[in-house]
């Protein structure tokens, strides 16, 4: 797959010397959902801001669809839609009027059919004549998406799309994003909701203090950096870990009734067989067992801690 966004040694230093981005390079493939994870102040919004023309880069370059976002900004921006983190709408305007305004801004002639399709897609058609100030927060968020989509962009930037929205709306948003990806739109989302990235992303980039720590396919990242846990429910409580099991670095929980074994999935060999054999030889029985994979959140926290 060919990259639709190329970011080359992008650097942003704000007045006062704050380095928001330090020589970030990244390529985003057409048609993928790319999640940019990072704590507050990591540089996610600055990166999006530069790509969309809201922020001037100190150095480096960004291309969208092969067009330089500064030199060839018209062609580049026509390809891009942006849904910012904050809900910012013209409260006194009607839904259809503000969406029509956005289409015109992006140089597209009025097209009632496109307006209707986009508003129906986001379940806003029935509210097309309502003033934005009368809509719920969730609907306003959908209006923002409609405004970003009405010029039919090939790239959609979603800056913290789930910030401040309830669970139901968040799930609805995820469905919308997936349907856009199915329609061929490349989606770049920033989030600090790990669940969101885990649920939707094809690839994940982790950014911290303006540095891109890692870019990896989500499943590969989970496989490579994920930890697993084997939890054995013992028949009889153990007071201490028996001497022969000390090298396994096991942990006793629930007053000695649960034995926990943690292992790296990347190691390839879990050695579970060996552990179970050794338990049998020591006469330690168990009546249940379960395994659990560490979440993306745990991976993310571990990466950020390491980078710090």
């Amino acid at each position: 797959m060919r990259p639709i966004i190329r970011i080359d040694r992008l650097r942003k230093v704000y007045k006062g010397g704050l380095v928001a981005l330090g020589d970030v390079s990244l390529a985003i493939d057409e048609g993928e959902i790319f999640a940019l994870l990072g704590p507050n102040g990591a540089g996610k919004t600055t990166l999006i801001g530069i790509a969309c023309g809201l922020v001037n880069a100190t150095s480096g370059r960004v291309e969208a669809g092969g067009h330089d976002i500064v030199r060839d900004y018209r062609a580049a921006r026509r390809l891009i839609g942006l849904v910012p983190q904050e809900i910012a709408t013209d409260s006194f305007e009607s839904v259809i009027s503000t969406v029509r305004f956005s289409r015109g801004l992006f140089g597209c002639p009025p097209d009632p059919a496109v307006l209707e399709r986009v508003l129906r897609q986001l379940s806003l058609w029935e509210k097309r004549d309502a003033k934005i100030m009368t809509l719920s927060g969730g609907m306003k968020r959908r209006v923002m998406i409609a405004k970003a989509l009405v010029h039919e962009p090939r790239i959609l930037f979603l800056d913290e799309p789930s910030a401040g929205v309830d669970v139901e709306l968040r799930r609805g948003m995820w469905d919308t994003v997936r349907s856009l990806r199915d329609a061929g739109v490349t989606i770049i989302l920033t989030t600090h909701y790990i669940e969101e990235a885990e649920e939707m992303a094809d690839r994940i980039g982790v950014i911290n203090k303006g540095e891109l720590i890692l870019v990896e396919e989500k499943t590969a990242l989970m496989r490579k950096l994920g930890r697993k846990e084997l939890r054995l429910q013992l028949g009889e409580a153990l007071a201490v870990i028996p001497e022969p099991l000390v090298p396994w670095a096991l942990e006793l929980q629930d007053d000695g009734l649960t034995l926990v074994y943690r292992f790296e999935t990347a190691a390839g060999q879990s050695r579970i067989d060996e552990l179970l054999r050794e338990l049998r030889q020591l006469g330690i029985g168990f009546h249940d067992l379960e395994t659990r994979q560490s979440s993306l959140e745990e991976i993310f926290m571990s990466l950020v801690r390491k980078a710090s």
Binding site: C52, G53, L54, Y73, R74, A75, A76, R77, R78, I80, L82, P84, E86, A88, T89, D90, S91, S102, L105, F106, G107, K147
Partner: peptide, 13 residues
């Protein structure tokens, strides 16, 4: 003031 300037700045205008 309202934040809607983002749209003007990100449009091909």
């Amino acid at each position: 003031w309202s934040g809607t300037i983002y749209e003007l700045l990100s449009a091909p205008v």
